[in-house]
């Protein structure tokens, strides 16, 4: 015991503990020098192992993230990255946490981009064909260059939903923009200065709040809760012993499982 308290487990010991545990093993081997490639982070060259994601490669190279790193799982939009590859004029894009490095990759992260967001009371906004244009009139300036779609790391047809927004088709905008993680790369490329993801967000909220039908069973349940219908049952359950609860839980007549 005393030994354990003395300090953080020394390296050797914790490795051993990991081997005894259920943790997935083994740890990947250290990269051999031959598997190193060169990437350029904001112009500076770094040698990194070839199979890493951009995020892990930057950490390998010595970067400690404050911005530009979030959920590390492709959902939060913190790590939008723009890059070029060897001998190509094309500007490419990816999430640093999801994109594997390539030799000669020449990159920068865009962790933040100034956006324009309107304020609204969602309950009071009629879901009509005018509402998106009213809040974000700049969508009418779209020149159909398709830069937004080309840069989207989620492969969303961004220009397509902006066109739908111009037509006032809220349902279509909501559906087409659904996978948006609001990384902001579309806005960074738009010559018309549109902030696409805010338009998508407004459309989804309008659809969810004012277009989709409210769940009838939910309203019914709320009424029942207000009358206190479940209180006596919950009182009773709350006073039960572990043994009584366990008996109920494992009795298929009491707790049948819906197929």
């Amino acid at each position: 015991m005393a030994e354990e308290v003395k300090g953080q487990k020394p390296k050797g010991k914790s490795q051993k503990a990991a081997a005894e545990s259920s943790a997935p093993t083994p740890q990947p081997l250290a990269p051999s020098p031959s598997s190193l490639i060169t990437i350029f982070v904001m112009g500076e060259a770094y040698q990194v192992p070839k199979d890493l994601t951009i995020m892990k490669a930057m950490e390998y190279a010595g970067f400690k993230f404050i911005r530009g790193c979030g959920c590390r799982g492709g959902f939060c939009g913190a790590c939008g990255t723009v890059f070029r590859t060897k001998d190509s004029y094309k500007l490419k894009v990816g999430l640093a946490c999801q994109t594997v490095v390539e030799d000669g990759m020449y990159l920068t992260q865009i962790p933040f981009y100034p956006a324009n967001k309107k304020e609204y009371d969602i309950a009071k906004e009629p879901a009509n064909t005018q509402v998106l244009v009213r809040f974000y009139p700049e969508i009418m300036r779209c020149i159909a260059c398709n830069s937004c779609t080309k840069i989207c790391p989620q492969d969303i047809d961004v220009m397509g939903y902006i066109n739908a927004a111009i037509r006032g088709d809220i349902e279509k905008v909501a559906d087409m923009s659904f996978d948006c993680i609001m990384c902001g790369l579309c806005a960074s490329r738009c010559p018309a200065e549109i902030v696409h993801y805010q338009v998508g967000l407004l459309a989804r909220r309008l659809y969810g709040a004012n277009v989709a039908k409210k769940a009838p069973h939910l309203a019914e349940r709320m009424k029942e809760i207000k009358t206190g219908k479940f209180e006596p049952g919950l009182d009773k359950l709350g006073k039960m012993t572990e043994k009584e609860l366990s008996a109920m839980f494992y009795d298929p007549k009491v707790r049948d499982v819906e197929p």
Partner: peptide, 17 residues
């Protein structure tokens, strides 16, 4: 109910279920 009012797009049938 709160989320529905705020506009969260839950998976629903056309009748709202």
């Amino acid at each position: 109910e709160w989320l529905e009012e705020l506009g969260v797009m839950f998976d629903k049938d056309p009748d709202g279920t």
